[in-house]
């Protein structure tokens, strides 16, 4: 649905994108991750026909973003970083305006606006000026405006930055429903947990290049797998535990803990605890530590 080949973009002498290649299949949620200034927004703006790349090609829904911008525009919707809803219009008027610009006709735009106000929990606020809305309500309306006509590809640039948990849940639910309905969603985010929750595939963008790409689970398993964390307390206990458990055990002296690779089964944890018990090493607490996308991200961007 989206194919990117060797995409480059510079502002004056600063290279923002230096040869990006990516493929995104239809009906999937794709998360673009990366630190501030990595080029995420620039990439989204190129795909949404707002800026031209310096080199390389990008096609969205089968159309080249530079040569056929009109066809691309008919297939996409964009929700940018700053909410683009109109303060001096009501929520309903915002939706109707976009509906009519998307050629739904007067009646069609009105009906669609009512549906979306319901779906995004804004029915009671529909007749109020957006100026009176809370931040979360604005973001929800902003997303609703993008869905006035079901797009084939939806771009969401940091859709949940600054949202309260409830608004975030509403947004996530909407994204999942869209993907299930066959819409391809490309979202940028700084919240790795969000990518983990929502995305089928994740790409890390750093200094204008993709440094890792794949399903979240795959990326995580490339790094260390799950580990059991045994809290012991005293440094002396940590030393003895490592001696008892042997090779795999890693001391974490400052926290008074030992980390042991595990498959997460209860049986293995029982064996570990029995061995320590037999050697007279008391264990305070047990925790299973799973690598998060944060671990992947920090490891990747460090090297």
């Amino acid at each position: 649905m989206i194919a990117i080949r060797g995409l480059t973009k510079s502002y004056r002498s600063v290279a923002v994108l230096r040869g990006v290649d990516l493929d995104m299949p239809q009906g999937r949620v794709f998360a673009l991750l990366g630190p501030n200034g990595a080029g995420k927004t620039t990439l989204v703006r190129i795909l949404a026909t707002l800026i031209r790349p310096d080199g390389g090609t990008a096609t969205v829904a089968g159309h080249d973003v530079v040569r056929e911008p009109r066809r691309v525009q008919s297939a996409i919707s964009l929700t940018g970083q700053s909410t683009a809803v109109d303060e001096l219009l009501t929520g309903e008027e915002n939706l109707i305006l976009l509906g009519r610009l998307r050629r739904l006709g007067r009646g069609g735009a009105r009906r669609r606006a009512a549906e979306l106000l319901d779906q995004f929990d804004l029915r009671d606020a529909g007749r109020r000026l957006v100026r009176t809305y809370s931040g979360g309500m604005r973001r929800r309306l902003d997303l609703a405006v993008s869905l006035v006509r079901r797009p084939r590809v939806l771009f969401l640039d940091e859709p949940t930055t600054g949202l309260d948990p409830r608004s975030r849940q509403t947004t996530w639910a909407a994204v999942r429903a869209l993907a299930a309905d066959g819409v391809t969603v490309l979202l940028t985010t700084q919240y790795l947990e969000e990518a983990d929750q929502l995305a089928d595939r994740v790409a890390f963008l750093d200094h204008g290049a993709i440094i890792a790409e794949g399903p979240p689970a795959g990326l995580k398993s490339q790094l260390a797998g799950e580990r059991v964390e045994l809290r012991l307390g005293a440094p002396e206990a940590v030393r003895r535990a490592v001696a008892v458990l042997g090779d795999g055990a890693q001391p974490d002296a400052p926290r008074g803990a030992v980390l042991v690779p595990t498959d997460g089964s209860a049986e293995q944890v029982r064996v570990l605890l029995n061995r320590l018990d037999g050697a007279g090493v008391p264990v305070d607490r047990v925790a299973i530590h799973r690598p998060t996308l944060d671990d992947v991200f920090l490891t990747m961007t460090r090297s």
Binding site: A48, L50, Q73, G80, S82, A84, E87, L101
Partner: peptide, 14 residues
């Protein structure tokens, strides 16, 4: 321009 409204309008086929 500052609210991003122009970006949205420019991404429409209008």
């Amino acid at each position: 321009l500052t609210t991003g409204a122009i970006d949205r309008f420019r991404s429409l086929p209008i």
